[in-house]
Design a protein around this nucleic acid. Sequence first.
RNA 1: CCCGCCUUAGCUCAAUUUGGCAGAGCGUUGGACUGUAGAUCCAAAUGUUGCUGGUUCAAGUCCGGCAGGCGGGACCA
Length: 320
Amino acid sequence: MDIDTKINLIKEGTLEVINLEELKEKLEKESPIAYTGYEPSGKIHLGHAITVMKLKQLQNLGFKIKILLADYHAYLNGKGTLEEIEKIAKYNEKCFRALGLDDSTEFILGSTFQTKPEYTDKVYNLATLTTLVRAKRSMDQVSRNSENPKVADAMYPLMQIADMVALDVDVALGGMEQRKIQMLARENLPKIGKNPPVCIHTPLLHGLDGDEKMSSSKGNFIAIDDKESEIKKKINKSFCPIKEVDGNPIIELAMHFIFTNQEKILIERPEKFGGNLELSEKELIDMYSSGELHPMDLKNGVSKYLIEYLADVRKFMENN
RNA sequence: CCCGCCUUAGCUCAAUUUGGCAGAGCGUUGGACUGUAGAUCCAAAUGUUGCUGGUUCAAGUCCGGCAGGCGGGACCA
């Protein structure tokens, strides 16, 4: 596969790649490293899955994948004690494997290297280069915005930047909420004599309640190991305005988890409402926006496919 | 280290001058209406009133101690 083809594949389903020239250089390397950091989370949901899918693709394209189980970051973000978080991290590792990352994937617990002198030295160095306001602003989408922000909020992005050096990454992948931290990294790493990674950002899924972001803290997600009945129930309860495609979480699920794997979706529909349909992505969007496809039929179709799509994940989680 | 203010449902806050059954909005859950959800209407659930000791027939309310938060002061050889 030539490099331009690879680049086009990588660009698919992302909001931005910063930048393409550098990505090209990285792809010429023997075994470039791509990484994503995740705060250990009680539930791994479809929002996480978006980035994992992209990591899988990078893996297939020859990248070495490192996943940072960012226990200290979660700790700094007020998610609990280190012990609690590490327990969750183990569970998360299993979730990520269940999503199909192969055995070459390296899982790294943040606390195994984030206290080393050469690491903290970089954090302190970055601390002298970053204003409080800038650090805090980079955390807008990431931090639990507490009434009483802690110094931890300012340390968090600095550590994330130091991680990139410590893990020797060529590509840093993350959801769009990571953007400000990533840009801070690209700005500040050269100041400490390091080359910044290529940054790739994937879209955020809307919450099932129509909220801007699917997130574990808001309970508006589908977990990758949700039972069939739960998936069905959650989809049924979801925000899904008729004829509206933008910001419609169910439409988004179809685009990200169905049409990425197959050309068409079968919508089973009672005869009195017009009978079954087999639709491409474009046809589905068109029919839905015109009102010819009712939300309930959409929900039933998406629900069925999602349950099927996650079947292997559930099986893996049960057997391991 | 000192002084002042704050802490009540998941969240934001109420609780008559002067102790008397702890409430509302939002959210949650359930119903009604829509062939989904939402919106709208109806209904329900939820509390160790930060912790602790005391005064009182009776304490969210008064007094003491502690913890946490916010603000100020002091210290700066």
